[in-house]
Design a protein around this nucleic acid. Structure first.
Length: 217
DNA sequence: GCCCAGGGGGCTC
DNA sequence: GAGCCCCATGGG
């Protein structure tokens, strides 16, 4: 399995090059983006992030003072805007109550402690927690998303419906705990998924993983 | 008009 | 755990 996972990584890297993730200027912006991108295209998230910035709300202090209604209005392109406004507030509440608003203090916790702390927040599930761990805190926590499942399933490496933790463990037990590798690997899977391995319209012509794929259409 | 996009919570069994 | 529903915009 180790060699297969590394082979996939090399092929994707060769095909697409470095992805320079996560798109975001600050750690806080990465966290906000991780919550807003749940089940939504990144294009919509970008508009919401721009709106928050234009209104001076891309800092924990100012966002904590804004009303849920105002936040919801600004992040409307991200679909579940009322839910996500609450989720942002839930994270800010944790930050304020347990870390006095000190984001650095939270993000420098050891990986297992930080993951548990993030998972305790309403609206932060496993994928969002791992995205924050990897891309905001710089810790080697592999991120599993819908593209990861679909691509690995089409390669015949997994069934597809396995629990999140099982797939995360598959990567983490077979790859070195390297932040840059995890960063690039997940970003490449998303790039490949968006561009070549979508749900309805897989473009299998000259796909970098073509000869590994079990479900060529 | 339909499908789907870088999920998560809450509920039932 | 597995299997449902809910959330509720915008682009292809």
């Amino acid at each position: 399995m180790r060699e297969v996972l590394l082979d996939i990584y090399r092929r994707l890297y060769e095909a697409y090059g470095p992805q320079n993730w996560w798109p975001g200027e600050t750690q806080f912006e990465v966290i906000v983006g991780a919550i807003l991108t749940q089940q939504v295209s990144w294009n919509a998230v970008e508009r919401a992030i721009t709106a928050l910035k234009d209104n001076g709300l891309m800092q924990p202090e100012s966002l904590a003072r804004a009303s849920i209604e105002r936040i919801a209005l600004l992040i409307r392109p991200t679909v579940y805007y009322n839910q996500k406004a609450k989720k942002l507030k839930a994270f800010l509440k944790l930050l304020e109550r347990r870390y006095q608003g000190n984001l650095k203090e939270l993000l420098t916790l050891p990986l297992p402690e930080l993951r548990a702390e993030l998972l305790s927040v309403h609206g932060i599930g496993k994928e969002t927690a791992d995205s924050i761990l990897l891309y905001a805190a710089g810790k080697p926590s592999f991120v599993v998303d819908a593209y990861t499942r679909r691509i690995l399933a089409r390669l015949g490496l997994i069934e597809g419906s396995e629990p999140y933790e099982k797939i995360r463990t598959l990567f983490m037990e077979n790859l070195p705990a390297n932040v840059q590798l995890y960063n690039e690997y997940h970003a490449l899977l998303v790039r490949h998924g968006k561009e070549r391995c979508r749900k309805r319209s897989p473009r299998c012509d000259s796909c970098p993983l073509e000869d590994l794929c079990q479900s060529v259409r």
